[in-house]
Simulated scan of single mutants.
Amino acid sequence: MDNKDKEKEHEQTASGRNPDVNDVEEEEEDEDGNKRAVVLGPQVPLKEQLELDKDDESLRRWKEQLLGQVDTEQLGETAEPEVKVLNLTILSPERPDLVLPIPFVPDEKGYAFALKDGSPYSFRFNFVVSNNIVSGLKYTNTVWKTGVRVENQKVMLGTFSPQLEPYTYEGEEETTPAGMFARGSYSAKLKFVDDDGKCYLEMSYYFEIRKEWPAIQ
């Protein structure tokens, strides 16, 4: 196999396409506006990709450099990645960390949690990726008060390989709004999606902003 053939094989295996399966063609325009054919093969499971050419030392090192340390125990037989959001932790220097499993379990008033007005806080998520690499994972958190949208947060988390150990993301510290008019009930929707638009979590919930932190149970 000459260098050009090996480079071509690198491109095919790294893209998640099986070089032994007949490819399909799509068209895209170049810089001059001319259409050209782009060869796209069917996506195959990452586990199968890692097995391809495993006896070729140069290809194996190249894949390791591209993919990083992939936990093969987390690789399934499907090409679709899976993301499971495990919990949300509310962090504040004013109180102990509050770990909330997902989906949230509301209290007797229907609230998932309560925050103190005018207080610093941040959120931390733990999530697990399995089966395949998830590309461009991001989350949105939209908040309403009395039907009026007051926040629409969009955060890009990045691209993650499958592994047994959960990933952790901690957001920047913020401060809850203060004052009598800021207190009360809020509704929100949390959503995790990837670059392909696949949704891994979509959850509506309610929370409350109070004058004081709730009692520690």
Rank of each mutant, 00 (worst) to 15 (best):
L100C: 09
A114R: 14
D97S: 12
S122K: 11
V99R: 14
G158E: 08
P106I: 03
Q153K: 11
G171Y: 00
R124D: 01
V148N: 12
V105F: 07
V105E: 14
F160P: 02
G110N: 09
R124E: 14
F160V: 03
P93C: 09
V148I: 14
P101K: 10
V150E: 07
P103M: 08
E174L: 12
P106R: 05
Y169Q: 03
F125D: 02
P93D: 05
G171V: 00
N131K: 12
E172N: 08
P103F: 07
P120I: 07
E108R: 13
L91I: 14
F127E: 04
E165A: 15
V143G: 04
E174F: 00
E151P: 00
S130T: 15
V143C: 04
L98W: 08
Y111A: 13
E165N: 13
V128W: 00
V155G: 01
I90L: 15
G110F: 09
Y167H: 11
E174P: 00
Y167G: 03
G147T: 05
W144K: 10
E165P: 00
R124L: 10
G171D: 10
N132F: 02
G118M: 03
V143K: 10
K116W: 04
E165S: 14
D117G: 14
L100E: 07
V134T: 08
S130R: 15
L100N: 05
L100P: 04
F123H: 12
V128R: 15
S161M: 13
T142W: 06
S92E: 05
I133G: 00
N126M: 04
S92K: 07
T168P: 01
T146D: 15
S135M: 06
I133V: 15
R124K: 15
E108P: 00
T142E: 13
P96T: 09
P106Y: 09
I133N: 03
E173M: 13
F104L: 12
S122G: 08
D97Y: 09
Y167E: 02
Y121P: 06
P93L: 09
Q163K: 15
Q153M: 11
V105G: 01
V128P: 00
K116Y: 10
